[in-house]
Simulated scan of single mutants.
Amino acid sequence: MPAPERIPPGRVSSVDLLAKGELTVRGRVREASNAVLYCSVSYEGEQAHCVYKPVAGERPLWDFPDGTLAQREVAAYELSEATGWGLVPPTVLRDGPYGQGMVQLWIEADPSESLLALVEDEEPGEGWKAVGFAEVGEGRTALLVHADDVRLRRLAVLDAVINNGDRKGGHLLPTADGNLYAIDHGVTFNVDDKLRTLLWGWAGEPLPADASRTLTELAATLTEGAPLATRLAELLTSAEVEALRGRVGVLLGAGVHPLPSGEWPAIPWPPV
């Protein structure tokens, strides 16, 4: 696929461009389990590339209501924006060539930046956090590690808040300008504990001060009647919004990164 064009500076925001622009399908991302279409979008002289995931192309899941994955992707973006961390690309819910779906700004990752690695040592090196040992063939194992990076640490907190059931390595998109974006948030906001992630390196460690402040501010924005809570009520069930409030409260009360529950596989498969 060609590299996406950056949105030039102008009066049209990324969200307006995605929500109001004309979508043209350019191709399909074949590796995805659901229908994921690569598109261009144009509006008032500005253009960019984006991903369009129509609800009609979602595969049913036993533990999520049918036809709700697109809404969950948008809810994850709304939560990310509320934290001020900007970890999820601009995402909207709109009609497209194949019906209603999620439309998200395409992010071009910097291939030179590595956030995950397999090492033969039993302990992670400086600047890395251990996830666990993995089989690498011929009876050998290697230690899976992720970078000890403030951006990843914030993402680990966000994933705990949204109850992300599928944080894989391929969902991490570092960019050449130093930002980190995370994608694929369809299996989030379940009322049951579904947290599965590769970012367990900080499990049990105290939350950073900035994360605790952000969670405190987030709790206030989730009170009933607040704008964020009202917006999320359009995307999630009332039980899911209440469970979200509960997770924020539990994180604040514990003051530490969560540990695997032991009742659900801790790491998604395949991990990348």
Rank of each mutant, 00 (worst) to 15 (best):
A32Y: 01
L152N: 05
D148T: 02
E234T: 12
V131R: 12
L93S: 08
A233R: 11
T230D: 10
H49Q: 12
W106Y: 09
L79T: 04
W264P: 05
P208G: 05
Y77Q: 06
T24G: 05
C39F: 00
A32E: 15
I107P: 07
L172D: 08
A82Y: 00
G137Q: 09
G204S: 01
L232T: 02
K53P: 08
C50L: 06
A226T: 00
G201H: 04
K129E: 13
G139M: 08
T91P: 03
D184E: 05
G27C: 08
L222T: 05
E113T: 13
K129D: 05
A147M: 06
S238P: 02
T230W: 05
A130E: 12
A56F: 06
V92P: 00
E120T: 07
N34A: 02
E242R: 03
G165L: 05
W128Y: 08
E31Q: 15
G96W: 06
G246Y: 00
F64P: 04
V272I: 04
L115H: 14
F133V: 13
L172Y: 06
D148R: 10
A254E: 15
A82H: 00
G225A: 09
W106D: 11
L105A: 12
E263I: 09
L155E: 07
P258M: 00
R28W: 09
G27N: 00
A219D: 13
P174L: 14
G96V: 08
D192I: 06
V161D: 04
G27R: 07
L116G: 09
D16R: 12
G201K: 03
L198D: 09
L158N: 11
P260I: 07
R140F: 08
L87T: 01
V248Y: 07
L105P: 03
H171C: 06
K194N: 14
P124Y: 04
E22G: 01
T68K: 11
I7V: 14
P208Q: 01
A142H: 09
H49C: 12
G169M: 11
L93C: 11
V241F: 07
L235M: 07
H171P: 01
A35Q: 14
S112N: 13
L115Y: 15
I183M: 12
R28S: 12
R247P: 01
L143A: 13
T91E: 08
L118Q: 14
A203L: 03
A203N: 09
E205D: 14
I107W: 07
T214H: 10
G101K: 13
P9F: 03
V191W: 09
A19I: 11
A109N: 13
D210I: 02
N179Q: 15
D66C: 04
T175R: 14
P89Y: 04
A109W: 03
R140V: 08
E46M: 13
L118W: 12
L199R: 06
V92T: 12
E120K: 10
A134P: 07
P227Q: 01
Y43N: 06
L215R: 06
G170A: 10
